[in-house]
Design a binder for these strands. Structure first.
Lengths: 184, 184
DNA sequence: ATAAATCTACCAATAGATAGATAGGTTATA
DNA sequence: TATAACCTATCTATCTATTGGTAGATTTAT
């Protein structure tokens, strides 16, 4: 694949995580990549195409990180610790989860991007559900695996959203403490 | 106070909750209120002034709702139930919490608006902390009141953010179930 | 020489913001 | 009381900058 396209996607992803899709223009993106805006349209005909590509990329990268956890972590506690760590890393450099950011902008997205967004959250929650199911003996909560997965995912998305406002990480740590308290 | 200004604030608030501050223009706001954009600048000299006013308004209205809960609800369970209900109501009509939405756009806000945003979340979490403290006998969690307050607030903000993407309310209900499970 | 990548140059639409005018109401004063 | 001064709320008209997007020429690489 094109090296320039990858670079554009990388720059665009960071920009969206930082200030949203609405505040990303073809011109600033082009400037940051050292080309002209017309050339960005060569790779991404319109903004919807760009948005969809970014979500697909991000989902794939997230999935890869989950696979790494599957490979290297044994018990539920360390798996969930690693899961939380993904969000802590995102919060650094003043960023949000790309899909969390786009969720706020969902009413301005095309149908394809909306569908991809749904898929992202579904995938993350399904992974969580599976982990909880596979380690149910380590778990101590009256909530179903599915509900707990939703609580964890939405809790972390909300935590980075709010933490970024005052530049700390207290809420994400509180979420982690909650998760730990649900594991025996 | 001016009737027109109130109307503008109401329209703008709904618009921001729906699609964000970046996607609200003086012209569309003016159109919806039946005046010209120059007249909007009469009430709100620049966009930062508008943003700050909206946050102040929203914070005040939220505070009023919390006061209502204080007056009418006795035990922790029903208080927290009512607190969750605020967010459920917001989610209807495809909206987000105004401050949750602006939290996503925080990097485009002026310093005053940022400070007001921080205040909003602080206020909400302080109210929650106080409730937990006052009803500690009903509580069964190893987490501190403060941490639990942060978990609840950020959890609900994340829940409406994600729920809106696929038009449901499963995550907010999951968050409510979690909260209930933390109360004896 | 062909295809991929990038450019120049533009377009129509929209953005936030300002200047200056006006009509109508209120207040202060001679 | 009459009138001058001021205030409120709105308008028209305009400015500069930016937006997403397109057509067609040109360069670069295979």
């Amino acid at each position: 694949m094109s090296k320039k396209k990858d670079q554009l996607e990388q720059i665009a992803t960071q920009s969206v995580q930082h200030s949203g899709l609405s505040n990303l223009s073809f011109r600033t993106l082009a400037d940051d990549a050292g080309i002209k805006s017309a050339s960005v349209h060569y790779y991404f005909p319109n903004k919807g195409d760009l948005a969809a590509s970014l979500i697909e990329n991000y989902t794939q990268s997230f999935q890869a990180q989950l696979n790494q956890i599957d490979e290297h972590k044994r018990n539920l506690k360390s798996k969930l610790r690693a899961f939380v760590q993904i969000f802590e890393d995102v919060l650094e450099n003043d960023r949000l989860c790309l899909c969390g950011m786009m969720a706020a902008e969902v009413n301005g997205l095309d149908e394809q991007s909306k569908a991809l967004l749904k898929e992202y959250f579904l995938m993350a929650e399904q992974w969580l559900t599976l982990q909880l199911k596979q380690h149910k003996e380590e778990l101590s909560s009256p909530l179903s695996n599915n509900k707990l997965a939703r609580v964890i995912m939405s809790g972390l998305e909300g935590a980075i959203l709010l933490d970024r406002v005052d530049g700390g990480s207290e809420r994400i740590r509180a979420q982690h403490d909650l998760i730990k308290s649900l594991i025996s």
